[in-house]
Write a protein that binds this DNA or RNA. Structure first.
Lengths: 270, 270
DNA sequence: AAGTGGTCTAGACCACTTT
DNA sequence: AAGTGGTCTAGACCACTTC
């Protein structure tokens, strides 16, 4: 145990590193390796692995800092710094006195992280969905490219309209890798209430952690106008969004048309 | 337990707090105050004050962590945590081996933090401006409300077009509080090269640190269409942005119309 | 009372930059 | 060699939650 270390000045990092973490060491000896990686980054990677593998599932409590420090044979401070970064990236949530929880999309807090359309007046409600089409198909070239698939690979295609307080506001099309979301059916989508990302997380073990969005302005064509109950030619926001799961793997392409008659896209630049 | 330390465990934080930081103490005695504020937050506030007051100007080096720790009579670790947060908020930039610098808008890195319009192809260039109108006026009610002024207060109005690689892409109107930007003239704007925020920072001591943006889709009216050399009715992104300086004080209202023929608004959701 | 995350300290050493 | 930020440790204590 060595509770009262008589040893004055060995390098504790080196000892700990050699004991539990890989040889990609932080301070092993006189010559440091060219691919230097801080200990806490290695710990962060290990924790991320456990999150990705499902060892700790969304909503669950992860082991305490002290426990993780013992497991990895590092100090609590090092674990803390690793978890700090994971919390900053919204992979986990810390709660003083209770512990650290795996983030989940089954939470009001998470609902508006990816949906930035806000009502001009009143408090935001989560929209209701009406599914128009759900089918399996082969990935067109552009979809394949964005999802890191081969052209012609199986994908699931979804088209739906979203209603805010009964008003049709968003029409969007989604493409999902068929392999990752094998077994996703229209019935399952319709019966599931709440954000699709919650379903993906619970039923398919795939958690969206990041997204890249590109926005343009377009005019509503006949189809979109009909679905959104607007005049043809009405200006709409056109969003193309690619969402990523662990390892920066793209697992969703979403193309949406947003009516901004009563809503606006909100963005805070920090 | 207390195995080793002969030190009669006084609370060092309390001592330090009483010595240099305000009475809003972290751990002064048996009963903690209801308005608890960690030491590092107090240090952060003090550093922010020095930034705001101009004691350290944009681009300059601030005192080292050791020096600040001595000044405030706290440990280096506490200063470090304060600066960590300031760096996360883009108020300062750390550079290993050199020191910590006050952030500035006179930097390529900062140019695209508030301007999210990216070319569909090719690398982003900073646009050139053509000023159409610069005048002093009285704030309309809506402008006054957003800038936290009284209706009728003096404001500076600016209208300009921005060109990317010679193509007119943005037409925008700005309103600035007359008091803060007293002496801002069309001549000064025209002769100044580079982002306006650099001018505001250098000449008026006002640094934008945050902005809130709302985006809609609209159709180009005759005026916008002419300036952007587009057909009337072309869909445009319509942005309303309020920028804030220290103390969450709003100091700029900007309403822009963005052509998305060859550009798109880019947003990363983390 | 016990366990968790949150704060604070003190000291050591590393990586990077400049002198 | 000296100075800066960056990492790591060990230990103390605080605030919060639960038992």
């Amino acid at each position: 145990m060595n509770p009262v270390p008589p040893n004055p000045s060995q390098n504790p990092a080196a000892a700990a590193t050699g004991a539990a973490v890989g040889p990609t060491t932080a301070a092993a000896g006189p010559s440091s390796s060219p691919t230097f990686s801080p200990l806490y980054q290695q710990i962060k990677a290990l924790i991320t692995q456990s999150l990705q593998s499902g060892e700790w599932k969304p909503g669950e409590l992860i082991p305490s800092e002290v426990e993780l420090a013992n497991r990895f044979k590092v100090s609590q401070g090092t674990v803390r710094k690793a978890i700090d970064e994971l919390a900053a990236e919204n992979l986990v949530m810390r709660r003083q006195g209770k512990g650290t929880f795996v983030s989940t999309h089954h939470e009001a807090r998470a609902h508006f992280r990816f949906l930035r359309l806000m009502p001009d007046e009143g408090v935001p409600h989560y929209p209701e969905s009406r599914f128009i089409e759900v089918k399996r198909m082969r990935a067109p070239a552009d979809v394949a490219r964005l999802l890191d698939l081969k052209s012609g690979d199986a994908v699931i295609f979804i088209k739906r309209v979203q209603y805010f307080d009964g008003v049709p506001t968003i029409v969007e099309e989604l493409w999902l890798p068929g392999l990752t979301f094998k077994g996703l059916t229209a019935e399952r989508l319709v019966e599931y209430k709440g954000p699709m990302y919650g379903l993906f997380e619970s039923e398919f073990g795939t958690r969206m952690i990041r997204a890249a969005e590109k926005i343009r302005a377009v005019c509503a064509d006949a189809g979109a106008a009909a679905l959104l109950q607007l005049a043809e030619g009405t200006p709409l926001l056109c969003s193309e969004r690619v969402s990523f799961t662990y390892g920066d793997k793209p697992v969703e392409l979403r193309r949406g048309l947003y009516s901004t008659e009563r809503h606006h896209y909100q963005n805070d630049l920090n």
